[in-house]
C-alpha cells in the first residue's frame, strides 16, 4: 500500500514513558476483525484511552489536548508481542509518522518500515532528554531528518544520529515498498524455486 514519502519531519511529540508497550495495548485483539485497512486509529491504545463504557480516560496522554504531533515517543522495548501489523496501521491511521524509543521489538520495527512509519532508536539518555524537553514544554518540537539520519530536540538543539539500512532508507524517502522490488525479480525467484527440495 502506498504511503507518504518521508524526508524531514518537524513536529511536536506525544510522550508515552512506559516500558514494554506491547501490541495488545496498541490495538487489542477484539478490534482486529476488519477485512479492510480502515479506521484502526480510533482504537489505538483503546483500553488505556477509554473506560469500559467508552468514555475517555482523562489521565491518558492521547486524551490530553496539550499534547499533539506526528511523533510518538515511547519507553524502552516498544511494540513487543504479537506480530499484528494492525498495531502499526493504528499508529499511522491516528496520524503518527514516526515512533521514537530507546529499543524496539523486531517485528514491530519491520512492520512500521513496511507501511511508512519511521522507527527511530535513540540512546536511553537521549530518550530521557526528549521526555524532559516535552515535560518542560509540551509544544517542544523534534526534528527527524531521514537523509542525514539525525534527530534533534529543537528547543535545546541537542542532536543524535540513528541507524537505518540504506535499502530501507531509500524506500522510505521515495515511498517504495518491498513488493515492487520483489515483483521485479520474479524470474530469479523462479530459478531458485526450481532447485528447492521441498
Amino acid at each position: 500500500m502506498a504511503y507518504d514519502k518521508f524526508t524531514i519531519l518537524k513536529s511536536s511529540a506525544v510522550p508515552l514513558p512506559i516500558e514494554n508497550v506491547d501490541t495488545d495495548q496498541i490495538i487489542p485483539a477484539r478490534f482486529l476483525k476488519a477485512t479492510k485497512r480502515e479506521g484502526f486509529g480510533d482504537n489505538l491504545f483503546r483500553d488505556w484511552r477509554y473506560n469500559g463504557d467508552d468514555t475517555p480516560k482523562q489521565d491518558f496522554v492521547l486524551n490530553n489536548p496539550i499534547y499533539s504531533g506526528k511523533i510518538l515517543v515511547g519507553g524502552r522495548n516498544f511494540g513487543s508481542g504479537s506480530s499484528r501489523e494492525h498495531a502499526a496501521w493504528a499508529i499511522y491511521d491516528y496520524g503518527f509518522r514516526c515512533v521514537v524509543s530507546s529499543f524496539f521489538a523486531d517485528i514491530f520495527k519491520g512492520n512500521s518500515l513496511n507501511i511508512g512509519i519511521l522507527p527511530v532508536q535513540v540512546s536511553a539518555e537521549f530518550l530521557d532528554k526528549i521526555f524532559q524537553a516535552i515535560e518542560a514544554d509540551p509544544k517542544a518540537e523534534l526534528e527527524v531528518n531521514l537523509p542525514e539520519q539525525t534527530i534533534t530536540i529543537v528547543p535545546t538543539g541537542e542532536k543524535e544520529s540513528f541507524d537505518i539500512n540504506g535499502y530501507k532508507k531509500h524506500n522510505m524517502m521515495n515511498g517504495f515498498d518491498d513488493i515492487d522490488y520483489l515483483q521485479a525479480m520474479k524470474s530469479e525467484i523462479k530459478e531458485f524455486e526450481a532447485e528447492r527440495i521441498y
Binding site: M1, S83, E85, D106, N114, D178, Q183, M185, I189
Partner: peptide
C-alpha cells in the same frame, strides 16, 4: 517466525520476504 500483513502479501505474490539476518 511471525510476519506482518505486508509480508504476507510479499509471500503470496513472490514466495519471498526481505529480512536482515538476525
Amino acid at each position: 517466525f511471525g510476519i506482518g500483513t505486508s509480508e504476507v502479501e510479499m509471500v503470496l505474490s513472490s514466495q519471498c520476504i526481505m529480512q536482515p539476518k538476525p
